[in-house]
Design a protein around this nucleic acid. Structure first.
Length: 515
DNA sequence: AAAAAAC
């Protein structure tokens, strides 16, 4: 078994890795680090949770350990789609640069320019940024990207979804063509393929099975739900959510609850709070300090329920999330995979529970088709008997006077009347034997049929010619053989990196930004 | 149809 010490990393990086408690690299790390250290471009096809972040931070730190930053000319750049992901990457750098004097700046929106400007002026080794704020700095003439030796694009497919690709292309154009590029995407959409063909040069292609797709360690269930009356549907759906939560009782240590709309995030969070649940919302309309505070609280365990829009669907690495609830069926099947991937991380078990209303059934079908798996149906207890106690007059205010529903966390067994109705189907669902399926069915459309041809033939498709004196194919090409150890092993052991509790939880946003 | 990201 490969150890980090076999990977030619800087001794001080190795020491930091040991301090963090890691010994062996994950497949993506094992595949990406060697070519990255050789100065090659890397095309990594992997989701977070696979140890992807360290697969670029570790070689970057090793490479940057030689040399010094110059004012306004950062030596490396990491681009992330959301502010939270950028902060997470920054934290990862902190962990592994503890024995180095490398400096970094986190350039994200929603906070003042002042501190960011100060850091840039002093000169930083690593810039971690969201595209909008980065370009803003460039346009203000405060930042030059001509000194960037290593550029990382993280979560490229999400950048695509969010319409960032033109920005990314522009940023590529601001960096020297001699730079080394490390490019990560969970999938290879045609547009992503085009970008990599244009901006990467003979990349080492490293691919790991998507961990979260429908892996054995995430139990997935769905409750088909229909309101008794149209005007009651919303409040009944919130009640259904509470029943799902209550039924899990103490098995649900914490959870992310996803809604499709920001408005529903707010409504559900408010409703849960009113019913005595420890819940807080997170979405893009909340101000950044609030977002940071909420996420930090969820990470350190002081918040049990995070109600989230898709801002939290991808990449967020909170190691021990026991449950993901899809309050709404995501309208893009891909998003389902990302959402449930917030649980069952680092080899742990996780449970994903979804509520599906009739109008979402089409989207639901698309999800089952994507993951090539039947999601276990559980019954809606309210439909079978129990709707009567939800008096129509009381429902819209969700008055807290009904104490029975307000103290769910204390009682392991939920309400008496509903207990029998609910327990049966849900227990049955849990007893369902895990279907045997191989690695391939875990990654039904992760990588279509385009595995190697493009990476090899890309030299003639370069729209933007790029001399590659120092970047010839050395060593093995087509480095895509890293599935062997994927899949998590099933013994529920915690593996890989990214499983530590980030220290920046303890810091204020200001400290983090300047630190 | 919605979310995210620059001011």
């Amino acid at each position: 078994m490969t150890k980090f010490s076999d990977l030619n990393l800087d001794p001080k990086v190795l020491k930091a890795i040991v301090d963090a408690g890691y010994e062996s690299p994950t497949p993506i790390q094992e595949g990406a680090i060697p070519p990255a250290l050789e100065g090659r471009d890397v095309l990594g096809i992997a989701q977070t949770g696979t140890g992807k972040t360290a697969s670029f931070t570790l070689p970057m730190i090793t490479l940057l350990a030689k040399g010094r930053a110059r004012a306004r000319m950062p030596r490396s750049l990491v681009l992330c789609p959301t502010r939270e992901l950028a902060a997470q990457v920054a934290e990862n750098f902190d962990t592994y640069t503890k024995y180095h004097k490398l400096t970094k700046a986190l350039l994200i929106g929603g906070v003042s320019f002042k501190e960011q400007d100060k850091l840039i002026d002093k000169g930083v080794d690593v810039l971690i940024a969201t595209p909008g704020r980065l370009l803003d700095h460039v346009e203000r003439g405060k930042l030059l990207l001509t000194g960037v030796q290593v550029m990382v694009v993280d979560e490229a497919d999400r950048m695509l979804d969010m319409g960032f690709i033109p920005d990314i292309e522009r940023i590529f154009g601001l960096t020297p063509f001699t730079r080394q590029t490390l490019f990560f995407s969970a999938t290879m959409a045609p547009e992503i393929e085009r970008i990599t063909n244009t901006f990467l040069s003979n990349p080492a292609r490293v691919e790991v099975a998507r961990q979260a797709t429908s892996s054995e360690n995430i139990e997935q269930v769905v409750m088909m739900f229909k309101g008794s009356r149209k005007d009651r549907e919303a409040s009944e759906k919130r009640k259904a959510l509470r029943m799902l939560i209550d039924n899990e009782a103490e098995k649900c240590t914490n959870a992310i609850i996803f809604c499709n709309r920001k408005m529903d995030v707010d409504t559900v969070a408010k409703s849960l709070k009113k019913h005595g649940y420890d819940a807080a919302p997170i979405h893009g309309d909340l101000d950044q300090s609030q977002r940071t505070k909420t996420l930090d609280a969820f990470r350190d365990g002081s918040l049990r329920f995070l109600i989230a829009s898709d801002v939290a669907a991808r990449g967020l690495d909170v190691p021990a999330v026991s449950h993901v609830f899809n309050y709404d069926v995501p309208s893009h099947a891909e998003d389902y995979v990302h959402r449930i991937g917030r649980t069952g991380r680092a080899g742990r078990d996780g449970k994903a529970m979804m509520i599906c209303v009739p109008r979402d059934e089409k989207n639901f079908d698309a999800i089952e088709k994507l993951i090539q798996k039947t999601i276990t149906r559980i019954d809606n207890p309210m439909q079978t008997s129990d709707t009567l106690d939800e008096a129509p007059a009381a429902e819209q205010g969700e008055k807290p006077k009904r104490t029975r529903t307000r103290t769910p966390r204390k009682s392991a067994a939920p309400k008496v009347e509903t207990a029998q109705v609910e327990a049966a189907p849900i227990e049955a669902a849990q007893a369902e034997p895990p279907k045997p399926h191989d690695a391939k069915s875990d990654a039904p459309k992760a990588v279509p049929h385009t595995r190697e041809p493009k990476a090899q033939t890309n030299t003639h498709t370069n729209a933007q010619p790029k001399p590659q004196a120092q970047k010839e194919a050395r060593g093995r090409s087509g480095n895509n053989n890293n599935r062997s150890r994927g899949g998590g092993g099933g013994d529920n052991k915690v593996v890989g990196m990214g499983d530590h509790m980030p220290g920046f939880i303890a810091m204020s946003f200001d400290e983090r930004r300047t630190g």
